[in-house]
């Protein structure tokens, strides 16, 4: 029987073909002493098929809290007794956040709203906000506003939103355990519309929601099938008041196995370190991930929680000799 890492080297590194579900599962089940080898291979795959550049992004919440949906990990659902209160960010503060994000060298600024999908008020805020950002700052604007109608997709394209984030969060078979107010298929439907519009698709999820390793492998290949431009990888940071508040944080070794496995499933995709990396992997985890297949980071704070300062990540990138991806000249 061929060793899984040898097999992956031939298929993924040499030919650029992602692993299937059975092979991903084998990576997720590697013994501790082989994790370093898996990360090394994932790093080689990333360097060969994506290159050394790292895409840096900042995110901000335009509308926080009070969401009618029940995603069990989310402190912004209005259905749980979470301490997060509903609040809107004003346009000048939004522009200021975009400026500060650009000042770090980031090329992506993602505007996020805690909603099932946008209403007229949110679309109006987006229109005003995106225009104000474009007048003041050189940065790509992305958005994450929940499920969309075709008209809303078209409007976002017209505003100049270049990428849309909509996470599947977890695999299809586990999703009903995590969200009951909408379906995985509804999310998939929005993703298809976004894809067809020409906007870049950003779609990832959260690991450590209580899914099995088999389900983690299922998720990796479902994302590979969607073939998004970017996959943000979050690790559950259990939030007070949510149904998952007592869920243990993912074992750091399993987080590292997952990073390698997702890269080996998707050799050409931008894989971004998103929320929960600090609490799951500690300070060293960022380095391990960037040397294990990750080629993008969210810098600074998240939507409702804090990250480590952007400067720490940027200094690390300099030390690793990984250039920050520049804004494309076609912007």
């Amino acid at each position: 029987m061929t060793d899984i890492l040898e097999f992956a080297r031939a298929q993924v590194l040499d030919r650029g073909v992602g692993l299937d579900e059975v092979a991903v599962l084998e990576i997720l089940r590697l013994p501790d002493e082989r994790i370093a080898d898996a990360l090394q291979l994932a790093h080689e795959v990333r360097m060969r098929w994506c290159g050394p550049e790292v895409e840096v992004e900042g995110i901000v919440s335009l509308k926080t809290g009070g969401c009618p949906e029940d995603c069990h990990f989310c402190s912004q659902s209005g259905l749980f007794s979470s301490p997060v209160r509903a609040v809107w960010l004003d346009i000048p503060s939004l522009v200021e956040a975009a400026k500060q994000t650009a000042a770090t060298g980031a090329t992506e600024f993602c505007i996020v709203a805690a909603v099932r999908g946008p209403d007229a008020r949110l679309m109006a805020q987006m229109r005003e906000g995106v225009q104000a950002i474009k007048e003041a700052v050189d940065i790509n604007v992305a958005a994450s506003l929940g499920m969309l109608t075709q008209e809303q997709v078209d409007e976002l394209v017209e505003m100049g939103v270049h990428r849309y984030n909509h996470n599947l969060e977890t695999c299809r078979t586990y999703f009903p355990n995590v969200v009951t107010t909408h379906s995985w298929e509804e999310r998939w439907g929005t993703l298809k519309m976004v894809r067809d519009s020409g906007m870049e698709v950003c779609c990832g999820g959260i690991l450590g929601l209580g899914e099995t390793v088999e389900q983690r492998a299922e998720f990796a290949v479902q994302l590979a099938e969607l073939d998004p431009h970017e996959v943000p990888l979050n690790f559950l940071n259990p939030r007070p008041g949510t149904p998952l508040e007592d869920q243990p944080v993912l074992d750091p070794k399993d987080a590292l196995r997952a990073i390698a496995a997702f890269r080996l499933a998707m050799p050409r995709t931008i894989i971004r370190y998103a929320g929960g990396r600090e609490i799951t992997l500690g300070d060293l985890g960022t380095r391990d991930g960037l040397l294990g297949g990750v080629n993008a980071v969210i810098v600074g704070n998240y939507l409702t929680t804090l990250g480590r300062p952007a400067t720490q990540d940027l200094e690390l990138l300099a030390e690793l000799k990984m250039p920050v991806k520049a804004l494309s000249a076609t912007l």
Binding site: S61, R85, V87, N301, L306
Partner: peptide
């Protein structure tokens, strides 16, 4: 998330920096 003087829930806005 709570005011340290009175224990009320506060309105909190997080931005990147």
């Amino acid at each position: 998330r709570y005011c340290t003087q009175c224990g009320r829930r506060m309105k909190v806005q997080v931005v990147p920096t």
